[in-house]
Simulated scan of single mutants.
Amino acid sequence: MASKKTPKGKSGFFGVRQKPSGNLGVEFSDAARRCWIDMYPSAHKAARAYDVAVWRAERPREHLNFPEIKSRMEAEMLVPQGIKMKEITTKKKTKKKPSIVVNAGETDEEAMVRFAREHPEYVQAELEHYWKCEAEQKKKEDDVGPSTVIPIESSSEEDWAHFSKEEEEKGCDDLEKEEFWEQFRSSDNEK
């Protein structure tokens, strides 16, 4: 029988890592994906859950924490609450846009023309981006409709004088407003 790989981590089991909370997290990965299984209070229970994931993925028996288990059904019975594998999405690495190097004696415009000739896919992608933005802006304008400006006639001092006299005659129930109007009137009289 081939020797078992040395388990990684302090837990002593494959796929089991201690989290800052003190619980043990179980993570499973194969060539195509990474999956989060769950948190468990003990390393033994976490290792059992990892083994169920190994059985479900049909990986070799040497990846099991408990190779004495003979079947998937037996492994699943040892984890009474079952497992829920949630795939962990990883950020895809995007290809970095090549930089533009301006050679000695070359103007910026000449360098940009050379870049466009060497990398037409970036020029096309940029054009499509701007076209998309313009189309979205036009759609927003069409949805809202044309804006209308309503002219406001300028008011004369006579209109304002009339307004403040009406307020004076009516009086005010609110003491704070009354104090404000008194200060306002006294500042008018000082000028």
Results as ranks from 00 to 15, higher is better:
37 I>V: 12
115 F>K: 03
134 E>L: 14
179 E>L: 15
169 E>K: 10
178 E>Q: 14
156 S>W: 06
97 K>P: 02
22 G>L: 01
163 F>A: 13
131 W>G: 10
66 F>W: 12
187 S>Y: 10
24 L>E: 02
186 S>V: 08
29 S>A: 15
43 A>Q: 06
133 C>H: 09
65 N>T: 03
63 H>T: 07
166 E>Y: 14
47 A>C: 02
43 A>D: 08
33 R>L: 10
136 E>A: 09
138 K>H: 13
159 D>Y: 14
36 W>K: 11
91 K>A: 09
42 S>P: 00
173 D>N: 13
55 W>R: 01
18 Q>M: 03
152 I>W: 05
105 G>Q: 02
3 S>E: 10
58 E>A: 13
122 Y>E: 02
114 R>L: 05
131 W>P: 01
166 E>P: 02
125 A>Q: 11
180 F>A: 08
16 V>C: 09
95 K>V: 09
102 V>N: 03
83 I>D: 00
86 K>C: 10
107 T>W: 06
163 F>I: 11
8 K>L: 08
52 V>H: 06
145 G>W: 05
190 E>R: 11
58 E>K: 15
162 H>W: 05
47 A>Y: 01
7 P>N: 01
154 S>D: 12
127 L>R: 03
186 S>T: 12
175 L>M: 06
37 I>F: 03
117 R>I: 06
56 R>P: 09
109 E>C: 07
24 L>R: 08
118 E>A: 08
133 C>D: 09
96 K>I: 08
138 K>T: 08
189 N>S: 10
87 E>P: 02
113 V>Y: 08
141 E>G: 02
160 W>N: 06
129 H>Y: 15
67 P>M: 07
34 R>K: 13
179 E>R: 15
60 P>C: 05
5 K>M: 05
151 P>Y: 01
96 K>Y: 08
112 M>N: 07
23 N>Q: 14
107 T>V: 02
190 E>N: 02
147 S>V: 10
136 E>K: 15
150 I>L: 08
146 P>T: 09
169 E>H: 06
9 G>S: 03
123 V>K: 03
6 T>C: 10
22 G>E: 00
79 V>C: 06
187 S>T: 12
22 G>S: 08
162 H>S: 15
88 I>C: 04
157 E>S: 13
81 Q>G: 05
135 A>Y: 04
71 S>W: 09
39 M>R: 12
62 E>A: 10
161 A>I: 04
49 A>E: 04
100 I>C: 04
95 K>D: 11
70 K>Q: 12
9 G>R: 12
191 K>S: 07
173 D>S: 13
167 E>C: 14
122 Y>S: 01
31 A>S: 14
26 V>R: 02
144 V>I: 11
95 K>E: 14
98 P>A: 00
76 E>M: 13
154 S>R: 15
75 A>I: 07
174 D>P: 07
7 P>S: 04
45 K>H: 12
10 K>C: 04
23 N>T: 15
77 M>A: 15
117 R>M: 02
101 V>I: 11
70 K>G: 05
28 F>K: 01
140 K>I: 01
93 K>E: 13
173 D>L: 10
53 A>Q: 00
82 G>I: 06
35 C>V: 04
23 N>K: 13
43 A>I: 01
71 S>N: 05
171 G>F: 07
53 A>N: 00
77 M>H: 09
103 N>G: 09
